[in-house]
Each structure stands twice: as structure tokens, then as C-alpha cells.
Design a protein around this nucleic acid. Sequence first.
DNA 1: ATGGTGGTCTTACCA
Length: 257
Amino acid sequence: MKIATWNVNSLKVRLPHVLEWAQMATPDVIALQETKLTDENFPETDITDAGFHVVYAGQKTYNGVAILSRYELTDVVTDIPDLADPQRRILAATTNGVRIIDLYVPNGASLDSDKYPYKLNWLAKVTAFIQQQLQEYPELVVLGDFNIAPADDDVHDPTEWEGHVLVSPPEREALQGIMDLGLSDSFRLFEQPEKSFSWWDYRAAGFRRNRGLRIDHILVSEALKARCKACIIDKEPRKWERPSDHAPVLADFASKT
DNA sequence: ATGGTGGTCTTACCA
């Protein structure tokens, strides 16, 4: 079973990319972020015609998450305890026996912005939710755009990034707090190329110069870690015409025997 | 330090 995450930065623009990549990479599940579509504008038919079940939680212009799966999607959750938030950043569902929690973590803007404490509070509430979900669903994946680079190895130039959002110690501690619930970064279970990133700024030729960050993650519970065979960042779609600024991340799991 | 690009019911805001 292959499970992917991809921040598409507008599904309206990127729907052809998603369908093309789905044919190429044959994921069974794709968690999307930044669909930027209201639910009534969601291209459900195009996606079901491509052979996927789909659930989504969208809003106008900003945010928006969706899960595509070759299997039925059940027990859908879009809102969590103690977080009354109109922003659509959370989507959980069960598919083929695996609990999927798709997150679009707030960016945070800058350390002195109001959006920064919003991000940290959001992460605290989501951590409590994940803890609760882990008790109910031992086979669990938390994936998405975390907007946090876990370590300096995940940053093209750690010195340049010091003091910025996406790398600050409180953000990294919040991510570690999620991992401490019993989740592993599937990407780091395997040997990886140096300077592996999942996002490159559109500005200043970030992709061409590989000035990126690894901020998109697939975290796996202990039960799934044992079955995880591979995790890669697929840079191919980032080279296409009119790309998202993020590349998809794809993890492969052995079937339960 | 600045600003570069890209998306959106755009001319401001988000990333």
C-alpha cells in the first residue's frame, strides 16, 4: 500500500498534475493540502473517474485538505476538540484499515506575527487529537505539510534560516512532541540523498539551486513502521510546467500477512 | 537586508 502527501497550492490549477502523477507513481492514497477550493467547487467527478474515493474539507481561497484513496474512506473527521477554527486544515479518515490524518499546519508567517502563536496552539491541540486517535487506531499515519523542518539537515542553509519560522526551536519541539506519541518520520527510516527537500520557494530560482526545506512529512505509528518499505520525495512533478512549490512524498508499506 | 514568484472571485493577502 502506497501512501502519499502533496501540497498542491490550488487543486484547480494542479488537478492535471495530480492525475498524471497518480498514474506515474501509483499511490493508493494521496493526502492533499492547499486545495484552495470550496466544497461545491471540488472536482469530485474528475477524481472518482480516475478510480479514487475522495473526501475533502475546503474553504474559499485559502487552505483546504482532501484525501484520495483507491479504497473506501470512512469515519471522516474535520474538526477536533478545543479548536474552534474556520480554517480547513485537518482531515482524518480510515481507508483499507489504516487511519489517515491529513494536516496542513499553519505557516506561522514570522516569529513576531500573531500567526506564530496560532501555529503553536494549533499544534498543541492537534497533538492531543493524535494521542486520542492512536489509542483507537494503532495503524495510523499522520502526514501533510507540517511547515516545520525537523533538523538542520532538512534546511539548505541553516544559518540563513536561523530566527525564521519553519525552523524555530518551539516549532521543532512541537513536532518532536507529536513523534513522542509513538510516531516515526518514515523518510528517516531509510538512507536518503543529502540535501533532500520537499519545498522550494518559487522566488529566486529556489528549485534550480536546490534552496529548499523538507517540511512535508509522513509519520507512521509503530505498527506501520514495521511494515514501511520505503519513503521517497518525488521531485519529478516539481520540474513540470506550472508546478506546485512542493513535491509529493510517497511511502510504501508491505501488506499485512 | 531586500526581493524575487505564484495563487486567489486580486489590486491585498497568503505562502
